[in-house]
């Protein structure tokens, strides 16, 4: 059977709503655990207010945060999935974005970067972003939306092989401290770190690591998994908690993704996915049925593949 643009539109509209309103379980559990251990009393107050906020959002069906971020999509197409038109798929994603912006409502954040003009629907030149990947032996299409807010908390640095892990730690500390003060990054955050690739891949990997992997997930390389743990602990030892108040709740989890890079360099990016870590995924099966979840399952073994095949 063929998946139609109508299926895509239905699924995309639904995940736009879910992402904006319902905090993913993995992140919620992470924040609950931090609220239990946070000793800074103002930071603990903030975390408990956030837990109230998630409940209010779900009960009232209203967005958890009014900055509904920049809605965007990640599409994973099964190798055996059949779709009559890929252009129609993209058009369906745009339509769902405009409709959800009006209906939820989402804040129409998208404006022209120079003229600041807007269409009140979160659409525009090169927006929303749609990123593509493929999956062998599958006949479904997965669509994930991420509503990432936050003008603060993301940075890029070209490091060099000689900088080593120390250089990454230095950069991570600089970023968390700079954007953590006054809570500009709306921490505690899921921190995504991209290491390697070219500059743009490095940014992309870090962003995907923050937004498309769930709290508790570990990189399959055990050495990298150890670093993820170490960096999380490092962030939580700064002495800073939610809103930049004295405390220990900075990093809910840390995810690292790597890509082969130029022999002379070690580009690194840091991204923070905020207290409104909004993501939702729909799987459109070949018979047109749709199932929903909050784990994007974006980084499959095929996605991280090495070698020729």
């Amino acid at each position: 059977m063929t998946i139609t643009a109508k299926h895509i539109e239905t699924a995309a509209y639904e995940i736009m709503k879910k992402a904006a309103i319902d905090i993913p379980d993995d992140y919620l559990t992470g924040i609950e655990a931090m609220a239990d251990t946070e000793s800074g009393d103002l930071s603990a107050f903030v975390l408990s207010a956030m837990l109230d906020n998630y409940r209010a959002a779900t009960e009232d069906r209203r967005p958890m945060c009014a900055d509904t971020g920049l809605p965007r999509y990640y599409v994973k197409v099964g190798d055996k999935a059949r779709m009559d038109s890929m252009v129609a798929l993209e058009a369906a994603l745009r339509k769902a974005t405009a409709d959800a912006t009006h209906d939820v409502p989402l804040r129409p954040n998208r404006v022209h970067p120079l003229w600041r003009t807007e269409h009140n629907n979160n659409l525009g030149i090169n927006s929303p972003e749609v990123e593509w990947s493929f999956e062998p032996d599958a006949d479904w299409i997965d669509i994930t939306t991420v509503h990432k807010g936050g003008l603060f908390g993301t940075d890029y640095r070209m490091l060099f092989p000689g900088d080593g892990i120390d250089g990454i730690k230095r950069f991570l500390l600089d970023t968390l401290i700079a954007f953590g003060k006054r809570g500009l990054a709306c921490q505690p955050a899921i921190v995504g770190i991209g290491i390697g690739g070219s500059k743009d891949t490095c940014m992309q990997l870090g962003k995907q690591a923050a937004c498309l992997r769930v709290v508790g997930d570990r990189n399959p390389d055990p050495e990298i998994a150890k670093l993820e743990h170490e960096f999380k602990e490092l962030g939580n030892s700064i002495g800073m908690g939610a809103m930049g108040f004295v405390g220990s709740s900075m990093v809910v989890d840390c995810h690292i993704e790597v890509g082969y890079t130029h022999t002379g360099g070690m580009p690194v990016s840091v991204h923070t996915f905020c207290l409104s870590s909004r993501r939702a995924t729909a799987r459109i099966h070949s018979d047109g049925t749709i199932t929903y979840r909050t784990d994007p399952k974006w980084f499959t073994p095929y996605m991280r593949r090495e070698g020729i095949s």
Binding site: D60, R62, A66, A242, L275
Partner: peptide, 14 residues
């Protein structure tokens, strides 16, 4: 006065 979180959009919306 500062808002809390800062993502308490649903509570404030209420």
């Amino acid at each position: 006065l500062t808002t809390v979180g800062y993502g308490t959009g649903a509570l404030l919306g209420r």
